Computed example of a mutant assay.
Amino acid sequence: MTELFAPLSEVIHARKSVRKFDSDYQIAPGVIEEMLQEATLAPSSSNLQPWRFIVIQDEEAKKKIKEFSFNQEQMETSSAIIAVVGDTEMYHNIDEIYLSNLEAGNIDEVNVQRQIDNAKALYPNAPADARLTIAAFDAGLVSMQFMLIAKAKGYDTVPMGGFDKAQFAKEFNLEDRYAPLVLIALGKAAAPAYGSTRLPLEKITSFV
């Protein structure tokens, strides 16, 4: 049976940041994996995909995260917390990514070698803060894509940047190269999200 989805515009308008989840509702790990797989079709800088995910469903782990996340209720009542982590040493994956692209027939040998050489000249020599900025930008792209996919499948989300990132990294034994960037609570809403307005388009847009 073909799964039917709402039009993209409808999904965009329906997605709201939910903060009250049904704590009894659980989403199977396999379903979350499918959504993450789709989300990773998001673009990234030089296709280096510097995102990593930690899917947190263990109740004790969620309570621990709540402690250093301003005690936000959704940390504990959501079905899962998706931690989006940035790999600031994304250049370690250059060969694997580009040679996979070659194997898939998306590029020829001459151009793949040129791309590998260019990426290896640029990314390892870039300042650490520049690489963090790149990872954070790309994490935003994959996070938004994940939240829209979740909404299209009937789930609710809220992204959170307000948490103690150093404490999170310590709790999950992250290497220095990995930077916690955003937490996405995922589940079924137990109460409607608050509505919100946006600035008028003419205030934020110009045509030249």
Rank of each mutant, 00 (worst) to 15 (best):
P43L: 07
K20D: 11
A80M: 04
K20Y: 12
Q57E: 10
A169Q: 03
D22M: 08
L174D: 03
N47E: 09
A130R: 10
R15L: 05
A39M: 06
N71S: 09
F5Y: 15
A128G: 08
A39W: 03
I94Y: 05
A152Y: 10
K62G: 00
A152N: 09
V11S: 06
A6D: 07
S196M: 03
N93V: 14
S44A: 15
S206N: 01
Y194W: 11
S143L: 00
E33K: 12
P7G: 10
P159E: 05
Y178K: 02
R131H: 13
N125I: 11
T157I: 09
R52P: 07
E33V: 15
D95M: 09
A179G: 01
N111R: 15
M35P: 06
A136I: 13
I204E: 12
E34C: 06
E171Q: 14
P29W: 11
Y155R: 02
Y98H: 03
A135I: 08
G154Y: 05
R114G: 08
E34Y: 03
F146C: 03
L48N: 05
V84D: 02
I27G: 00
E171F: 12
A126V: 07
R131L: 15
A185R: 00
M1Y: 00
E171R: 06
T88Q: 06
F5A: 02
D117F: 10
F5Q: 02
N125Y: 08
H13E: 15
Q115L: 14
A121K: 12
S69A: 12
A130T: 15
R114D: 13
D156R: 04
M75D: 03
A126M: 13
V55D: 02
K153R: 11
F137D: 07
E34P: 10
A126T: 13
E38A: 13
Q74I: 06
A130W: 05
K64W: 04
F70T: 10
T88I: 10
A191M: 14
L41Y: 13
T40F: 10
Y98N: 04
E73N: 13
G105P: 07
F137W: 14
Q113D: 14
E38N: 11
M75K: 01
G86V: 01
V110D: 13
Q167T: 15
K20A: 12
A6I: 01
A150R: 02
N47V: 12
Y178Q: 08
M90W: 05
K64F: 01
E202G: 03
Y155G: 00
K66G: 06
M1I: 04
V208Y: 14
M147T: 10
S9D: 11
F68V: 02
R52T: 11
F68K: 02
R198F: 02
P192A: 13
V112Q: 14
S100Y: 04
V11Y: 08
T157M: 08
K170G: 00
L186Q: 05
N173I: 05
I94A: 06
D164F: 00
S206L: 09
E109H: 13
